[in-house]
Design a protein around this nucleic acid. Structure first.
Lengths: 337, 337
DNA sequence: GAGAGACGTCGAAACGTTTCGAAAATGAAT
DNA sequence: ATTCATTTTCGAAACGTTTCGACGTCTCTC
């Protein structure tokens, strides 16, 4: 059941079969027909490993996801699914590698064994060892989020700063005077997670520009933390009437805390931020939020990766996405004293 | 940077390097040392494609997930992550293939190109074309959930019937007289999705045994549907005081509907079912539920797959898991009229 | 000191493709 | 009929491993 078998039965050489299959050189219609008949009859498909060896490419991407221990958020999940789909459009497969900051086995196996043609890195830090590893291994990669020197590498990112800024202005326009940012975890911020840092900066700067008071709080990626966090906000800064968040995972807890405090959204309290659209829509009430365009990001990441693989000497390109803020019903004019 | 280069620098033949690496034949400690030094110096790692070609195995599993269009539930997501992790323990990688019932390109590419050593199939139907495809392709596979003839194939499953049965008894013990099963979608039931069918049967049978009234309703895998569904229950069977569900995705909507109807859980209404533990714990109040052991299932699936790959003529084995029901605070004695 | 048994190493073949250069077949033009 | 250009096909090399049989080279034993 290999190409030689097909060649024998069709009475041609192996190379002719190969050309008939790939179309890289013309083959007479008569022979092509004969070859195709045999192939259909035997259900032949070229062996992927042999092809990869000969071609020097695997038609496979590596997708580095956060380690299994950390629960994936809705955005992340949607992104993974979208990457697989986008890759499939180009007849590529996706190899998953859960990896934290240091090089674990799975990551090394993918990078070093020439198992993939390129890598998509999720959740990168401003200084990320995996980026260095990929660079030194000379393996094409695209990051989701950018590293310190934006011009030096290929990436797709969401303009967190711009979005958070617009969220703050939106709240200021509604008359809110005291707002809080519910950020992601302490650890991520400490590790230099870009979106968390940019969100913080944009948040405080914009609040200052608007002349309103800004507080910031970090919160682990889980509902329980969201609840604790929001309760803490209530006691520390009771004057706060609106929150902006980039921490999806904490939302159920925030909602619970709001409910427990007897606060109605948006009457007593406004809530907005950067949230996966499905989550924002399923919230009660639906959240006014910047919908993270996971599908678009995945498609762009795949496109950039293919471009880079096609021409390794190409100068790095990147895409910064600024999704619109969708007005739903979680923000309203300030009412609370 | 291939094995020949290492051999040359270490002054040995390629085969010796190979043996030093694999340990399949003894190599003198002196040469082994020399070879390892060269390898460390050059950072050499064998090319995965070449190795796969020579060995006839790829050290990769295929994981067939529901298509990207369908939103993955928490259980499914946890399972995917756990499979990747379990595979990594055995130095294997995981190739993702989103696939519906028919053979799409991605699935075919994986099956037929000998890209993987074996496949794990999620969300299978009682009669699933993909199972037939894998069987005819003679590729080892393990299904999550079983097909019509349980003895004929390798699988890992959760004893939905037993669990649902225990949920019903639990509710009956608490005095509930009228209960409802919130099943998964119509389409899945119609397509012959095992868990949904077994849950239905077990639910009605057990209710009968306990002498209580049972109703069943199908619900799409999304919060909005859950809400609509629960509202319908309220109008059609107002006497119902407890629900059992296997539809995680609908839960947020159910919760919203409960809240809107002014029903307190567990005072006015009891809620239980088969739910991912993280979701059950994050619910408000935490749900009494059978926690789907995603991590264990993933590990078992990988173990079974490896066993099968190791001995292709082995007789099919399977594991039926019956996780304990964790009593949290969403079920209580019947109070409502 | 010759034969046997370990042990360590080597060379060659195999895995199943792709691809390159060249050869053969075809057809048209002289 | 011969040449030339074009189309079609072929054979061989290459990709980077693993693995098998065989070939030294020791050491031990009688």
């Amino acid at each position: 059941m290999n190409i030689g078998e097909i060649a024998k039965r069709a009475g041609v050489s192996r190379s002719t079969v190969s050309y008939a299959l790939s179309g890289k050189r013309p083959v007479s219609t008569a022979t092509a027909q004969r070859i195709n008949d045999v192939i259909d009859e035997l259900g032949y498909r070229p062996n992927a490993s042999a092809r990869a060896l000969a071609e020097g490419r695997t038609r496979t991407f590596g997708l580095v996801i956060p380690p299994a221990s950390t629960r994936l958020t809705d955005v992340q999940l949607a992104f993974v699914a979208s990457v697989v789909e986008a890759a499939a459009v180009h007849d590529h497969d996706v190899l998953l590698s859960p990896s934290g900051g240091d090089h674990d086995r799975s990551f090394e196996r993918i990078v070093t064994g020439r198992r993939v043609d390129g890598v998509i890195l999720m959740e990168i830090l401003l200084q990320d060892p995996r980026v260095d590893r990929l660079t030194s291994a000379d393996l094409p990669f695209v990051t989701i989020g950018h590293v310190e020197d934006p011009a030096a590498s290929w990436w797709v990112d969401v303009d967190y700063a711009g979005l958070i800024s617009r969220c703050v202005r939106h709240l200021a326009d509604l008359g809110h005077q005291d707002v809080v940012l519910i950020n992601r975890s302490d650890e991520l911020v400490a590790a230099g997670y870009g979106p968390a840092l940019r969100a913080t900066t944009a948040f405080t700067t914009t609040a200052e520009e608007c002349g309103i008071n800004a507080h910031t709080v970090c919160c682990a990626d889980e509902p329980a933390a969201g609840q604790a966090c929001f309760e803490e906000i209530g006691t520390r800064w009771p004057e706060v009437t609106a929150a902006v968040t980039i921490n999806e995972a904490a939302l159920p807890g925030v909602q619970r805390a709001l409910h427990r405090a007897g606060l109605d959204v948006p009457r007593d309290f406004s809530l907005t931020g950067v949230i996966a659209d499905r989550l924002a829509e399923d919230f009660h009430p639906p959240l006014t939020a910047a919908d993270v365009p996971a599908v678009d990001m995945a498609r762009m990441a795949v496109d950039l990766l293919l471009e880079q693989i096609g021409d390794e000497s190409a100068t790095p390109r990147h895409r910064m996405l600024a999704p619109p803020i969708t007005l739903r019903s979680s923000t309203g004019a300030r009412r609370r004293a």
